[in-house]
């Protein structure tokens, strides 16, 4: 096994820990007095963490020259989607038990839910086009499509910000991370243009 394979499998195993922890707490009766709320928060936070991690790959590669790291990007993105699916299913099944009318009205009436749904709908096409075949078939358009992840990171962060009642310390960290990671992208687009003006 190469060193990179070890890294990849270690990250894969680590990425399953948040899900395993939920199962463990479920069976040991440790999901707090309000398990549904706890699972919602836990899966939502984990999804956002992986979304942010997937955005760190390219800057890491460009700043360190470690090219192999790019091979981790898809896995991190798919884990973000995996936890987003758990999060949304928790909401649909455990929280509302398929009460479509109430869910629909929340999506329309509650801006934070609207943004959660927006984020999820942005992630779906990215997950569907993450296969090697799709990457080949879409070519340049794949790169363009996958820029949607920038928007998803922004909407997810605002979704989190609007969830909290008063204490924005935690979402503030994610907002800071997203701003920094997106600033890299803006900088990379603008720097060459600035040079060409000179």
């Amino acid at each position: 096994m190469t060193r990179f394979t070890v890294i990849r499998w270690t990250i894969f195993a680590a990425a399953l820990v948040p899900a395993a922890a939920l199962v463990y707490w479920l069976f040991t009766g440790n999901l707090t007095a309000n398990p549904i709320d706890f699972i919602t928060d836990w899966t939502g936070t984990t999804a956002l963490v992986f979304l942010v991690l997937s955005l760190t790959v390219t800057p890491l590669r460009r700043l360190t020259g470690w090219n192999e790291v790019i091979k981790l990007r898809r896995m991190l993105g798919l884990f973000a989607f995996f936890y987003a699916c758990l999060h949304v299913s928790t909401w649909m099944v455990l929280d509302w038990f398929f009460d479509i009318a109430s869910m629909a009205s929340d999506v329309v009436k509650r801006p934070f839910i609207t943004l959660g749904m927006t984020t999820f709908l942005l992630l779906v096409p990215l997950a569907l086009t993450s296969t090697a075949g799709m990457i080949r078939r879409l070519g340049r358009r794949w790169t363009q499509l996958h820029r949607l992840v920038y928007l998803a990171a922004i909407t997810a962060t605002i979704h989190f910000w609007w969830v909290v009642k008063a204490d924005v310390r935690e979402p503030r960290w994610y907002a800071l991370a997203v701003v920094i990671l997106l600033t890299f992208r803006v900088w990379w687009v603008w720097k060459p243009r600035l040079h060409s003006v000179h």
Binding site: N34, I36, D37, L94, F97, D106, K109, R110, F112
Partner: peptide, 19 residues
């Protein structure tokens, strides 16, 4: 009268599954 960010029409009694 809803809270602007969520409905107040239902609640979860801790210890129960359905709202």
């Amino acid at each position: 009268v809803d809270h602007p960010r969520w409905s107040q029409g239902s609640e979860r009694r801790l210890g129960e599954f359905f709202r």
